[in-house]
Nucleic acid binder design. Structure first.
Length: 138
DNA sequence: TAGGCCATCTGGTCCT
DNA sequence: AGGACCAGATGGCCTA
């Protein structure tokens, strides 16, 4: 993405001069900085990989554009809370487990619908549970 | 062109 | 001492 990645950046910092009294110390400091930069890049790549994995298991609202990191976290939170509401639904205890695994998603423009079956006496009735993308404003 | 999003660099802090 | 983590700064890319 960055045009100057690994070229201008890894050459060390020119603006913030390392405390180097001698060329040797300067070189050591520069080498350490470059190593730290590389570690930081790797760390952030790991973080981004985790975000990608999270995006894959979170509803995408039917849009082709991928969720931003912030949206991904908010969506994951809403999604988990919605699933938790289903799992804690008291009607669930009367149903075979498999029925509660038959979840279906329906994506709306600004919300998501979870469909699932629950028992009413002899029969099963389909219920829906909607949840909304609910960004937290700071 | 402005604003949003992102990658990268950097210095500080904490931990092993 | 060195690595991990974090937050701020900076600059590039993309879209409305």
């Amino acid at each position: 993405m960055k045009s100057c990645q690994n070229s201008c950046s890894d050459s060390g910092s020119e603006s913030s001069e390392p405390d180097s009294k001698t060329p040797e110390k300067y070189e050591v400091a520069t080498r350490r900085r470059m190593a730290a930069n590389a570690r930081e890049r790797k760390r952030m790549q790991g973080l981004n990989t985790a975000f990608d994995r999270l995006r894959k298991v979170v509803p995408q609202w039917g849009r082709d554009k991928k969720l931003s990191k912030y949206e991904t976290l908010q969506m994951a939170l809403s999604y988990i809370m919605a699933l938790n509401r289903i799992l804690t639904d008291p009607r669930r205890h009367a149903a075979p487990h498999r029925q509660w695994l038959d979840l279906q998603f329906e994506v709306q423009p600004d919300s998501c619908l979870l469909r699932y079956d629950h028992p009413t006496g002899q029969d099963f009735v389909q219920s829906t549970l909607s949840y909304h993308f609910d960004p937290v404003h700071s």
